[in-house]
């Protein structure tokens, strides 16, 4: 066997090594803590699963067709909630996005404040917003609309501001050189560049909102979620099967339609 000289060891700085060791230890500690302190009663869960299985699973796959009409109506309400909510959000997001984009309003302070507002809004889960609005306007579908509208504004505002930041500023300069005023620049230089992508993201957000609005009823904010809670409380798994089927079909169809429209726009 021939022998060869071994290559020199890689020169990693002490800082890097220490950092790697610390990160590894932290991750291990996190897992040990998580798995030691989590409290799951396996015995009971398995026992329940065995006795419940035949009462739940076969029924889910055997939908209650008698409930179709009611389910369809609730699902329609869900679509209305998502539609009204996304549209409101898309409109609300535009001024916020211009505020948050660093190449518009002309101030770093404005842009920082705008970004803070948007990320604060995004930190609220949709359902928490729905809880607040249910208390405010009562348990009805409009609380859902408001929850979706506010929840989506955070994400759309962030996306829109990133789109605005990526536009070609030379066109704006060209218009300024023409003597156009701010409003004219907005409509002739900025808007044409951003509108297609704004639309595309708004439609994409509508996809997400359909999913989000289908569970809002769990806290009383209308739509198909109301039926989910009833079916669950009554152990009516056949009806749950119908609801599940309705959600799967509607979400799939809307995802498909939306991706077709979006590929046409951009």
């Amino acid at each position: 066997m021939e022998t060869y000289s071994l290559p020199p060891k890689p020169k990693n700085s002490l800082y890097k090594k220490v950092k790697r060791v610390i990160i590894t230890l932290l991750v291990i500690a996190l897992y040990v803590w998580t798995f030691l302190s989590i409290d799951i009663d396996w015995g009971r869960a398995i026992e329940r699963a065995i006795s419940n299985f035949h009462r739940v699973i076969p029924k889910l796959f055997n939908p209650d067709w008698g409930a179709t009409g009611e389910v369809a109506l609730s699902m329609l309400e869900t679509i209305f909630i998502a539609f009204a909510g996304s549209l409101m959000a898309a409109v609300l997001a535009i001024p916020l996005a211009f505020l948050a984009a660093h190449n518009m309003m002309g101030g770093k302070i404005f842009s920082t404040i705008g970004k803070w507002i948007l990320s604060a809004v995004r930190a609220f889960p949709d359902l928490i917003l729905a809880i607040l609005f249910v208390v405010a306007v009562g348990p009805n579908a409009f609380a859902g609309v408001l929850a979706i509208a506010i929840g989506s504004t955070g994400m759309l505002g962030k996306m829109f501001s990133e789109i605005i930041e990526s536009i070609d500023m030379e066109i704006v300069q060209a218009m300024e050189a023409n003597g156009a005023n701010k409003i004219q620049i907005l409509f002739y230089a900025v808007m044409p560049q951003v509108i297609p992508e704004f639309l595309s993201f708004a439609i994409y957000r509508f996809e997400i909102d359909i999913r989000a609005s289908s569970i809002l009823g769990i806290v009383g904010a209308g739509g198909i979620g109301t039926m989910i809670i009833f079916a669950s409380n009554n152990r009516n798994w056949n009806e749950m099967g119908t609801i599940l089927l309705a959600i799967i079909i509607v979400v799939t169809v809307i995802d498909f339609a939306s991706s077709r429209i979006r590929s046409k726009i951009v």
Binding site: I38, D39, I40, D41, W42, R44, A45, R48, A49, N52, F53, V56, I57, L60, L127, R211, A212, S214, I215, I218, G225, I228, I229, S232, R235, W237, M240, I243, L244, I247, I248, V251, T252, D255
Partner: peptide, 23 residues
């Protein structure tokens, strides 16, 4: 298909199956 089912709907079904709890 999996991605069309909202998280809370899955939770409702699993609670029905395994009872109330973390699992």
């Amino acid at each position: 298909i999996l991605r069309t089912i909202p998280d809370l709907v899955l939770a409702v079904i699993f609670v029905g199956l395994f009872g109330i709890g973390l699992f």
